[in-house]
Amino acid sequence: MAEAPPRRLGLGPPPGDAPRAELVALTAVQSEQGEAGGGGSPRRLGLLGSPLPPGAPLPGPGSGSGSACGQRSSAAHKRYRRLQNWVYNVLERPRGWAFVYHVFIFLLVFSCLVLSVLSTIQEHQELANECLLILEFVMIVVFGLEYIVRVWSAGCCCRYRGWQGRFRFARKPFCVIDFIVFVASVAVIAAGTQGNIFATSALRSMRFLQILRMVRMDRRGGTWKLLGSVVYAHSKELITAWYIGFLVLIFASFLVYLAEKDANSDFSSYADSLWWGTITLTTIGYGDKTPHTWLGRVLAAGFALLGISFFALPAGILGSGFALKVQEQHRQKHFEKRRMPAANLIQAAWRLYSTDMSRAYLTATWYYYDSILPSFRELALLFEHVQRARNGGLRPLEVRRAPVPDGAPSRYPPVATCHRPGSTSFCPGESSRMGIKDRIRMGSSQRRTGPSKQHLAPPTMPTSPSSEQVGEATSPTKVQKSWSFNDRTRFRASLRLKPRTSAEDAPSEEVA
């Protein structure tokens, strides 16, 4: 009796068929016929556990003709996506030579605008209408194809895939403007070719909807975003200037109206006075309405000098805001240009540092100066060695804690006790272990408590650290204090090793 083939788990290929790579489910599931010992083939499952149809090819690079078809379809799909992405970037994010197409579109729109203006002049109306009709045909074809291509290429973005995504893309403001202008152009052409009475009025009214094509030149909205950011950044200043200017306008108009309503027919109503105030304070000055009385002229002159300053403030605020924003954008561009080279330089330096163990090129690091100058660790070890030599091999803490019996001779020589300023008595072995921070803190506390006492003391002649007598400086308080830590004499004296002298005989010792 033939044995059933062993159940295979995992992703390994079956024996005897090495080139074939078959994806098997996580659990080997066989058909009921196979479990019962029949000759049925096992049921194939996909990666998600769903059964595959009987005629479906197995996924994998070596699955025969199905694999070749899959490779061809995958390559075609990649080319399709690449083309779609390229078209989308050309239309929505132009760079380099892609601006040539947008310059061509701008020339078409500008020519249409010029011809629309010439069509309103009686001398050039006939020729402009003929040229404009031909140009409209060209623009309908160009913009119609462009609109379709834009909607198709938007599928390269995830949020615009599918018919719902394309509809979302078509609802964008600039796409809506394109659609309105396209419909208006078709209506103008249809009305112009019919030759009816309505054609002339339709051409004159709907052609100027094509002015909206100038708005579509900035599809990404960079200028509007820049203007919005400047207004938002200086909103408080703008609101303040406009508010005060509006108050000056209504008060000036009302007072001039009261002064001129009886003697001047131009100011017969408050609305006429508001019109005069707006034209005057905005420095336009049509001259259609002028005050005639001396009181009205004085009020107009005073409020004009006051109001023009507030009406001119928004222009200066926006101008300075634009300058600052442009400078910030230039700085951001320079930062973006330098970020990648800086990151590459840091990575290269780290690779060199991690692979080169000698690091002989590091001549400006802490390790280099640590090898030249005595390190703080060596100074600490030197302090501890000196203290243990004086205390008979014991550390200062051990000397303080060691009990001394009554009447027993002390094995240590008597030492002079010292007192730290602002604290109780402490171990004499710690007097010379006072660090730089303690010395600086002690000097600052003395300056806070009594700076007036220092200038009363007789001035001391500054001497070099080499000429100081070591026996005289029994305490860190003898170090000359200065008002600034930048004094080199104080810094050098604080680094010197001060020996400890006994109370009975204080021989001067120098520590090399």
Rank of each mutant, 00 (worst) to 15 (best):
E3V: 14
A4V: 03
P5T: 05
P5S: 08
P6T: 02
P6Q: 01
P6A: 10
P6L: 07
R7H: 03
R8L: 05
L9P: 07
L9R: 05
L9V: 07
L9H: 10
G10S: 10
L11M: 01
L11P: 09
P13S: 05
P13A: 02
P15A: 02
G16E: 02
G16A: 03
G16W: 06
D17V: 07
A18T: 02
A21S: 05
E22A: 04
E22G: 04
L23I: 03
L23R: 10
L23P: 08
V24G: 06
V24A: 07
A25V: 04
A25S: 06
L26H: 14
L26I: 04
T27S: 05
T27M: 04
A28S: 09
Q30L: 14
S31R: 08
S31N: 05
E32V: 04
E32Q: 03
Q33P: 02
Q33L: 07
G34S: 13
G34D: 11
A36G: 02
G37D: 10
G40A: 02
G40S: 07
P42S: 08
P42L: 04
R43G: 06
R44G: 03
R44L: 14
L45H: 08
G46V: 06
G46D: 01
L47F: 05
L48R: 14
L48M: 12
G49R: 05
S50G: 14
P51A: 04
P51T: 14
P51R: 08
L52Q: 07
P53S: 09
P53Q: 03
A56P: 09
A56S: 09
P57T: 02
P57A: 08
P57L: 01
P57R: 03
L58V: 05
P59L: 03
G60E: 14
G60A: 08
G60V: 11
P61Q: 07
G62V: 08
G62D: 07
S63F: 05
S63T: 12
S65L: 08
S65A: 06
G66D: 09
G66A: 03
S67C: 04
A68S: 14
A68G: 02
C69W: 13
C69R: 04
C69Y: 07
G70S: 09
R72C: 09
R72H: 04
S73T: 02
S73P: 10
A76P: 14
A76V: 06
H77L: 07
H77N: 09
R79S: 14
R81S: 06
R81G: 14
R82P: 05
R82L: 05
Q84E: 03
N85D: 14
N85Y: 05
N85S: 10
V87A: 07
V90M: 04
L91V: 06
W97S: 01
W97G: 06
A98V: 10
A98P: 06
F99V: 01
F99C: 13
F99S: 02
H102P: 00
H102N: 10
H102Y: 00
V103G: 08
F104Y: 07
F104C: 02
F104L: 11
F104I: 11
F104V: 01
I105L: 00
F106C: 01
F106V: 08
F106I: 01
L107M: 07
L107V: 13
L108M: 03
V109I: 00
F110S: 12
F110V: 07
S111T: 07
S111C: 10
C112F: 03
V114L: 05
L115M: 08
L115P: 00
S116P: 15
S116A: 01
S116C: 00
V117G: 15
L118V: 03
S119F: 11
S119A: 11
T120N: 01
I121L: 01
I121V: 04
E123G: 01
E123K: 11
H124Q: 06
H124Y: 02
Q125P: 10
Q125H: 00
E126Q: 03
E126G: 14
A128G: 05
N129T: 05
N129D: 12
E130K: 09
C131S: 07
L132V: 06
L133R: 00
I134V: 11
I134M: 08
L135W: 11
E136Q: 00
E136V: 00
F137C: 15
F137I: 09
F137S: 05
F137L: 14
F137Y: 02
F137V: 13
V138L: 13
M139T: 07
M139V: 02
I140N: 06
V141E: 00
V142F: 05
V142I: 03
V142A: 14
F143C: 01
F143V: 05
F143S: 12
G144C: 06
L145V: 09
Y147F: 05
Y147N: 11
V149G: 14
R150W: 00
A154V: 11
C156W: 00
C156S: 15
C157F: 07
C157R: 04
C158W: 09
C158F: 12
R159S: 15
W163L: 06
Q164P: 01
R166G: 06
R166C: 05
F167Y: 01
R168H: 09
F174L: 07
F174Y: 01
F174S: 15
I177M: 03
F179C: 06
I180S: 12
F182V: 12
F182I: 09
F182C: 10
V183A: 09
S185A: 10
V186A: 11
V188A: 04
I189F: 14
A190G: 01
A191P: 01
A191E: 00
T193N: 04
Q194P: 00
Q194L: 14
G195S: 04
I197M: 10
F198I: 00
F198V: 01
F198Y: 15
F198L: 05
T200P: 09
T200A: 14
S201F: 00
S201T: 13
A202E: 15
L203V: 12
R204S: 11
S205G: 12
S205N: 14
M206I: 00
Q210H: 04
Q210L: 15
I211F: 00
L212V: 06
R213L: 00
M214I: 03
R216S: 15
R216C: 00
M217T: 00
D218E: 00
D218A: 00
D218V: 06
R219H: 00
R220S: 14
G222R: 14
G222S: 04
K225T: 00
G228C: 01
S229L: 13
S229A: 02
V231L: 04
Y232H: 05
A233T: 14
A233E: 05
A233G: 09
A233S: 13
S235R: 15
S235C: 06
S235N: 07
K236E: 01
I239S: 00
I239T: 01
I239F: 02
A241S: 02
W242S: 09
W242G: 14
Y243F: 00
I244L: 06
G245W: 00
F246V: 03
V248A: 10
L249I: 05
F251C: 02
F251I: 03
S253T: 00
F254Y: 11
L255M: 09
V256L: 02
Y257H: 11
A259S: 03
A259T: 05
D262H: 10
A263V: 04
S265T: 03
S265A: 02
S265Y: 06
D266G: 11
D266N: 13
S268P: 05
S269T: 08
A271S: 00
S273A: 12
T278M: 00
T280S: 03
L281F: 09
K289T: 02
H292Q: 13
H292L: 06
H292R: 10
L295M: 13
R297M: 09
L299M: 02
A300S: 12
A300G: 10
A301G: 05
L305V: 08
I308F: 10
I308T: 03
S309A: 05
F310S: 00
F311V: 00
A312P: 02
A315T: 04
A315G: 04
I317V: 12
G319A: 11
S320T: 10
A323S: 15
K325Q: 07
K325T: 01
V326D: 12
V326G: 02
Q329R: 13
Q332E: 12
H334Y: 13
F335I: 11
R339T: 12
R339K: 10
R339M: 02
P341T: 14
P341Q: 15
A343G: 08
A343V: 06
N344S: 12
L345V: 06
Q347E: 02
Q347K: 14
